[in-house]
Design a protein around this nucleic acid. Structure first.
Lengths: 195, 195
DNA sequence: TTTCTTTCTTGTCATTTGGCAAGCGCCTGT
DNA sequence: ACAGGCGCTTGCCAAATGACAAGAAAGAAA
């Protein structure tokens, strides 16, 4: 069994969970790997994995009106990968989640997570805190689609999440920013002139 | 003191909180009214109210790149009104929340809510459940912006939230749907032909 | 009621954006 | 090394969308 140090550290962020408890929680997780291009979740399925990504990179996407692939999220090492809506409500997902690189991490199921929430009050607190974080990010992202130009969104993403550009092709980044690869290409050209 | 029945009923949804506890929680809330056009939250302020809307209607909005008013949410009777990101993270808000009709409801502050979360475990559960609901709605809304045409979004909103059309002017609905009032007007024209 | 303000619709026009296709470069696998 | 595939850029054209403005309609205030 590999070292669960990073997983344990995750539960200790925000100081809501003690080391002993964090270790107890981590015990429930089992190792899981995804090879590049493997899917963690596919459209029309119920998301049943709460996956801590120790190493690698993943992308979530769905299809628009014209069946074009649109990126809804990126996940890099240290993040938890799952689709909130499908996972908690036990409804079929419209999103797919795919590994863009070989991935290594730790996983539990919906039932196990619930069991932990039930048994360990501090873990519920951790869950609530994580939920607020995720909700907040999504709201900020939604507002950025309104408040910022495509170029601003591009520049901000480049500053705040440079690792995305290491793993994801620009066409995936483009749809994440709400534009086409063509537009992103033009924005990059303009930006490189200024830079 | 008016009747807090609806507020108490809210805490009992999902069966996470008993009647007695629900009443205990409700005790902390004080009555608050907003006249039409009053603001519950304005841009650059920290949201400090967790407001149960018993009667009335509210709208949240922000400003886009060109300083145009864009609706980010509607709130009708029975819902809790607050801006998650600003409220929980104690950060300044980019959103405004305004009464579109005279409103009546019950309010507590951030400190009071935290106190209740701390004192009453079942209420934390309620909080987590509410958070999942809100997060889920936002994700679904985000996906609808990708997966559906403007007309589909309009028709779905008309079916699922007809009360919005009772209170909000169409130009506010338009920006909520991600289009201009001009486009919405044209969509309505087309739709009425078919319907 | 009368007046004034706001909202909704509709037309015209300009701009943005995307679709499409070609060319190029890079990477991968054989 | 070579072939094939994928991704990025670019130009051209078409279509969708928004800006603007005018007029009608509805609602609020006096």
């Amino acid at each position: 069994m590999k070292d669960k140090g990073k997983l344990i550290a995750l539960f200790q962020t925000s100081n809501l969970v003690s080391l002993n408890t964090a270790e107890e929680i981590a015990e429930q997780f089992s190792e899981k790997n995804y090879s590049k291009n493997d899917y963690l979740l596919t459209n029309q399925k119920i998301c049943n994995e709460y996956f801590f990504l120790e190493e690698g990179f993943m992308r979530a996407f769905t299809f628009d009106v014209n069946q074009h692939d649109v990126t809804t999220g990126f996940y890099s090492a240290g993040q938890v990968v799952f689709e909130v809506s499908s996972f908690f409500n036990r409804t079929i997902s419209k999103e797919n989640i795919q590994a863009l690189a070989d991935c290594r991490g730790w996983v539990i199921t919906y039932e196990q997570l619930n069991m932990l929430f039930h048994a360990i009050p501090e873990f519920r607190e951790f869950g609530r805190s994580a939920l607020v974080k995720g909700f907040t990010s999504l709201k900020i992202r939604m507002l950025s689609m309104i408040n910022e130009t495509a170029e601003e969104r591009y520049v901000n993403l480049l500053r705040s999440n440079p690792e995305i550009f290491q793993y994801a092709p620009l066409k995936s980044v483009a749809t994440y920013l709400g534009i086409t690869d063509t537009s992103l290409s033009r924005i990059r050209k303009e930006f490189s002139k200024k830079g």
